[in-house]
Design a protein around this nucleic acid. Sequence first.
DNA 1: CATTACCTGCAA
DNA 2: TTGCAGGTAATG
Length: 267
Amino acid sequence: METVVRALRKPLVGRTIKSFTTDWEKAIKAPASLDEFASGLRNQRVKSVSRRAKWIVIGMESAWSLIVHLRMSGHLFVTPADSDVDKHTHGRFRLDDGNELRFKDTRKFGTLHWLPLGHSLFDALAPEPLDRAFTPAVLKERLARFRSAMLKPLLLKQDGVCVGLGNIYADEVLFEAKLRPERAADSLDDAQIKALHGAIRNVLQLAIEREGTSFSTYLLPSGEKGQMQEFVKVFQRTDEPCTECEAPIKRIKMAQRSTHFCDDCQE
DNA sequence: CATTACCTGCAA
DNA sequence: TTGCAGGTAATG
């Protein structure tokens, strides 16, 4: 999402939204009606494009925001308003420069919100892991809250120890920290907490530098793939040799999600 | 914690 | 035809 936000800033900041159309009203979660959503957005000028956790926030000069969650298959991009419209495009935001912001979402899991400052969408979210305030001490305190919860499901929770990790990066983080996915949150010593903290920041920072992970449908707003899939060490490498010890990477199911790890390296 | 639900497309 | 896919909310 950080990569998406960075790419959308230039084409969106300073633009005015002239109109909105959709063929999938259910994507709109706030306000209650399509009418209120579309009329709220009309003639709003974009002031900023930012992000909280995996939510994309397009802030207007009016202090209201268009907030988008792309979930599994969502894609946001800016294109000339007269260009071909794919059948999975479910939202079109006409801009004042002849372009359109399009929301494409094959699986229709993504959500759109039009909300004023002070909304509660982000209230329960855990800290941003790349913020300076996210120190090993903060991680330690948050891990303690979750007692014997297993690390893998805990890292996926956006109201867990930190935000921003999905299934790919959670596996990569645990591999880098040399911790098993089923380890209990409260069983880590200080060195392991420090390793986990470093791994979370490293993996996310690298993923941003590589512009995301395009294993399946993820694409940059430009339509190009990210590069992080070339650098992952365990995700979707089942039975391939561990990069550290050559043991075959194992795949198990945890919290209904595929989970990849090295049986020898991770404790 | 696990399960289910929300959807469509694709590979086994 | 089944199962699986990068996410999250609701429910048990």
